[in-house]
Design a protein around this nucleic acid. Sequence first.
DNA 1: CGACTTTGACCTGCGC
DNA 2: GCGCAGGTCAAAGTCG
Length: 169
Amino acid sequence: MVKDGYEWKKYGQKKTTKDNPSPRAYYKCALAPTCPVKKKVQRSIQDKSIVVATYEGKHNHGFPFRDLFKPSSVTPEASIMDNDLPMTNISNDINIDLCLCNRVPTDVTDKQQKDGGSNMKALECISSLLKDPNFIAPLAEAVVLSINSQSEQVGLNLSLGLPQSDLSK
DNA sequence: CGACTTTGACCTGCGC
DNA sequence: GCGCAGGTCAAAGTCG
């Protein structure tokens, strides 16, 4: 379960979907009965260590900061959000979290070997940008808008290749 | 025994 | 109209 500061009530699950054989879970916001926010959680088809959580709608109540990012709340199965902004601050009705669970950057090393390390600076740049909430929020919006404008694109998988320690700083 | 989770069934929208 | 896939419901199971 992805911990993002809100409480979620699971109301359904699909074993498999066409675009991703991993189970997809459906959650509603449990903090307010009238809150219209829904959350879909599914593991990445390309890398099962990545959990993709998709938010739909806006919270009509305050953001509960308790439990958010407390070390005790980060279990081995828990994920780290790369965006520490409350979801209510984002204007779009659909928000996407990219969560990495104990991720080992194997794909980065593979790429380095293939590319001869030529993209190392780009990766460092991406790494620093991902630590900046002011970058993440518009990035998430741009991704969503991109998806909305390309209806043939189903699902979203991004392998950022960042170790958990980097994101939790 | 109540709260929470699981899971199969059902509903709905969409493409052919 | 039919079939499929996504989304939701609700009964059954589990746990404290």
